[in-house]
């Protein structure tokens, strides 16, 4: 990379060229080449203020999802509301990080080539886990049913907690 330095100003030189060898130049600039002096020119977004704004937004969103844990969260008895809310917050945070910290917002169209297939694979992968793993408890052997924890065990533990079987001799 270092040997590119003397020609780092090159992009300004070929301003009018929009096609090379019949292929359009993406965004009319090829300067995004690791170096560096030219990098500073084409990224007009650079302002530190923007990063700090994103940082504040991320902190705010973290506080929001943490809010579901607080006693003031109004839907404590409906966990699904909290889950949907937290996933929305997480996706927003992820978008902020990807777009601004990872500079994807300012990148050329190649970003779709890499991110969309990976994203789709990720979703398919998760969906494909559902029948084998997600539904594994629908059809299990009797032996397995005897071994695995069931809601009745939680209930049993709660009842044991309430029972006075051992509490009597204790001081309180």
């Amino acid at each position: 990379m270092s040997d590119h330095e003397p020609i780092a100003q090159a992009p300004q030189g070929h301003g009018p060229i929009t096609r090379v060898g019949g292929i359009p130049l993406p965004d009319g600039n090829l300067s995004d080449h690791g170096s560096d002096a030219s990098h500073a020119d084409d990224h007009s977004h650079g302002g530190i203020g923007k990063y700090l704004l994103v940082f504040v937004a991320l902190c705010g969103l973290t506080t929001l999802s943490f809010f579901t844990y607080s006693p003031y969260w109004p839907w404590r008895d409906q966990p699904h509301v909290g889950w949907a809310f937290m996933m929305t917050v997480s996706c927003t945070k992820a978008l902020l990080v990807i777009l601004f910290f990872m500079h994807v917002f300012w990148e050329a169209n190649w970003k779709y080539v890499l991110t969309i297939p990976a994203g789709m694979m990720a979703i398919f992968l998760t969906l494909m886990l559902v029948p084998d793993i997600g539904m594994r408890n629908r059809m299990v052997s009797q032996e397995r049913v005897l071994q695995m924890a069931r809601p009745s065990d939680v209930w049993l533990m709660e009842k044991a907690g309430e029972s006075q079987l051992l509490a009597e001799p204790a001081a309180h």
């Binding site: 890499l114 990976a118 997600g134 924890a149």
Partner: peptide, 28 residues
């Protein structure tokens, strides 16, 4: 780096997906 990250996306998607699927498929 981006190619590597796209493999990482799938790697963690599998891990997170496994967690979500196990968690919501479990009776308790």
């Amino acid at each position: 780096m981006w190619l590597f990250l796209s493999t990482e996306i799938m790697f963690f998607a599998a891990l997170l997906g496994m967690y979500v699927v196990l968690r919501f498929g479990a009776p308790v």
